[in-house]
Every structure is written in C-alpha cells, then in structure tokens.
C-alpha cells in the first residue's frame, strides 16, 4: 500500500488536513497564541486542569467536568451546524472544510491507554501546558514523557494493530 506519507499520516490525526492554502507571514500565527491564552485562563479558572476535579469526575463525585465537556460539545455542535448552514467563510474568505475521521482500532486501544494516563496525571495534553504555566514546574517532566510516548508510538506504529 503506497500512499503519500503526508496524507496518510494526517488521515490518522486531528491535524488540519484542511489547512489554509494561503501563504501567511508568521505573525498571522499570533492570533492562535491569543486564543490559546484565553483558553488557558478558562482552564485555570474553571479548575479543569485540577487533578482533584479529574478524580471527582472518574469517582462520580461532581458534575463539574461532565458539565464542562457536555456544554462545550453542545456549543461546538451548534456552531458547526451554523457554519455549515450559512456557509460561513474564514476571515480570509476561504470555505470552511470538514474532514471525516476514519475509524481504526487505535481509537479503542489508544483511547483506553490515554484514559489510564488521564486518571493518573489528571491532565490531557492541553492542561499539561497550562499546569506548567500555573507554576507546577515538575509537570515539565510529564510533558517530556508525553512527547516520548508520542515518539514511541511513531516508532512502533507499523507493528501496532490499527
């Protein structure tokens, strides 16, 4: 099976297959930094990056995290529906495109493995960055270890069931 590596690698990922065709100067990326900052502040203020809140979620002791994820999905669903219905364009006038994810067994095995790690660290990848920013410097090691985990997946990818 010979496929364009770039295409193949992207198909298994959340990275933007629908990346902009326009060439932008690097400082256009600063807008993502700003969105990230606002996002990080919400993470801290709603205690989403808290290990305790994640424990409460998995121990069914609090509705908080279910409310956060549930209402985020609701807002996301409605937004995507509106974007499709009114054919909303990007600020550069491009059409917004959605690419379907293809199912593979990694969604199950990888999902379970990530779940195990999530309950230990109390953080998914996004919160790891915010936890370090919030002053928990030892989480740098967790982040480096997560990068090592991603690398290890890349190394053994061909041998893993998909």
């Amino acid at each position: 099976m010979i496929k364009d590596i770039n295409q193949d690698a992207r198909a298994l990922d959340t990275i933007c297959v629908n990346e902009s065709q326009l060439e932008h100067k690097w400082w256009h990326n600063l807008k993502y930094l700003v969105v990230g900052v606002l996002f990080g502040i919400v993470f801290v203020k709603a205690e989403i990056i808290s290990w305790f809140r994640i424990q409460e979620m998995f121990r069914l002791e609090s509705f908080h995290m279910y409310g956060v994820i549930g209402s985020a999905v609701m807002v996301g669903l409605i937004s995507v529906f509106l974007i499709k219905k009114f054919d909303v364009k990007t600020i550069y006038g491009e059409k917004i495109v959605f690419h379907p994810k293809e199912f593979n067994k990694g969604n199950i095995y990888g999902g379970l493995i990530f779940g195990l790690g999530w309950a230990i660290t109390g953080a998914c990848p996004g919160p790891l960055f915010a936890q370090i920013g919030s002053g928990a410097t030892v989480i740098i090691v967790t982040l480096l270890s997560a990068i090592a985990g991603t690398w290890t997946y890349g190394y053994f990818r061909d041998k893993l069931p998909h």
């Binding site: 990922d13 990888g110 790690g117 999530w118 998914c124 790891l128 989480i139 997560a146 985990g149 997946y153």
Partner: peptide, 19 residues
Amino acid sequence: IVVGGFLVGFGTRYAGGCT
C-alpha cells in the same frame, strides 16, 4: 509523573486525538 505522562502521549496519538 513519568509513566502517567507517557501513557497520555502514547495513548492520544494511538487514538488519533485527545479530549
């Protein structure tokens, strides 16, 4: 700290995404 982080990084990529 270390094993937990590794599982997060390995698992999310294997699953093709995170939360």
